[in-house]
């Protein structure tokens, strides 16, 4: 069993099981302060009043239920293999359900061509099975159009292959805006991660329709992997700047491996 690996710093949210950044009504003591009119007299520390003759109020850490936005990239690029689509659906549902277990009301945003982006609620997660990956727009463009009404101080999980043309710094900045936590989960199929030499091949971009004839040999593949790695490293750099966590998963390895090897190592999930 896994649970969300939330960071130690407080996050905002409704009252719930997780500790918030503000002061709340949980049993976990946070600090004292002087009584101010209007404070709940149930939190007056009478003992302290006896010792210091001043009314002190015991402040307890607020217990919250964190907000979570799961952004599922439903563009065509996610449909390059069945495994990729499947694990994208599974991850979206998994994150939403984990958030739901904390009392949160997570939203799974289907980031595609529609503005505003449609969302799937916790109680309708079964709908994810029928979500088509047919969108032609890129996540970068959609964010620029403010298609997703991000919750402030929410845990933001982005599930995509991040293989659309984009500028990593700008994308990460937009995704991290007002988010308390940002996890970038890159889903690739095994060929996208490790292409195999297959001779002459006409590569057709599944979204733009652009194409090119390449001879897939070791040299060409090495060049591709160098570019992919550069993109991932730049994304990771910007993630560090925005306290975001990137992780890359191989869809063909399945959800279990993804949780055990990928998400857990990135501390996005914790074994409970």
């Amino acid at each position: 069993m896994y649970q969300l690996g939330l960071p130690r710093m407080p996050v905002a949210g409704r009252s719930g099981e997780l500790l918030g950044r503000g002061t709340g009504t949980s049993l976990e003591f946070q600090e004292y302060r002087e009584y101010m009119p209007g404070d709940d007299i149930r939190h007056l520390d009478w003992s302290a009043y006896a010792r210091s003759d001043s009314l002190m109020v015991r402040l307890y850490r607020e217990e919250i239920s964190p907000r979570m936005d799961v952004l599922l990239d439903v563009s065509r690029s996610m449909s390059t293999s069945p495994a990729k689509m499947q694990i994208a659906r599974q991850l979206s549902a998994m994150f939403a359900m984990m958030a739901g277990r904390t009392g949160s009301q997570p939203s799974v945003w289907l980031v595609g061509d529609e503005v505003p982006a449609p969302s799937v609620r916790l109680e309708n997660l079964a709908m994810l099975d029928d979500v088509p990956f047919q969108a032609l727009g890129t996540m970068d463009d959609l964010l620029a159009d403010h298609a997703v009404p991000f919750k402030r101080q929410a845990i933001r999980v982005v599930i995509s292959d991040f293989l659309f043309p984009h500028e990593p710094g700008q994308l990460v900045r937009r995704l991290a805006g007002e988010a308390s936590v940002l996890w970038l989960v890159q889903v690739l199929n095994s060929w996208e991660a490790e292409p195999v030499a297959s001779g002459g091949t006409r590569l057709i971009d599944i979204e733009s329709g652009n194409e090119t004839d390449v001879y897939l040999n070791q040299q060409t593949i090495a060049e591709y992997k160098r570019r992919l790695q550069a993109l991932q490293e730049e994304t990771a750099l910007h993630c560090r700047r925005h306290h975001a966590v990137p992780v890359t998963l191989i869809a063909d390895q399945g959800l279990a491996v993804a949780c055990r090897e990928g998400l857990s190592r990135a501390e996005i999930l914790r074994a409970s």
């Binding site: 065509r76 690029s77 996610m78 390059t80 292959d161 293989l163 659309f164 043309p165 996208e192 002459g200 091949t201 006409r202 590569l203 057709i204 971009d205 599944i206 979204e207 733009s208 329709g209 652009n210 194409e211 090119t212 004839d213 390449v214 060409t220 060049e223 591709y224 570019r227 992919l228 993109l231």
Partner: peptide, 22 residues
């Protein structure tokens, strides 16, 4: 006849070849 067998990919720009726009 496509001399090279077609392959649908994501992220064509990562292949660095001259891309033809049909």
């Amino acid at each position: 006849h496509r001399r090279f067998p077609p392959l649908l990919v994501a992220g064509l720009h990562l292949w660095g070849e001259e891309v033809r726009v049909p």
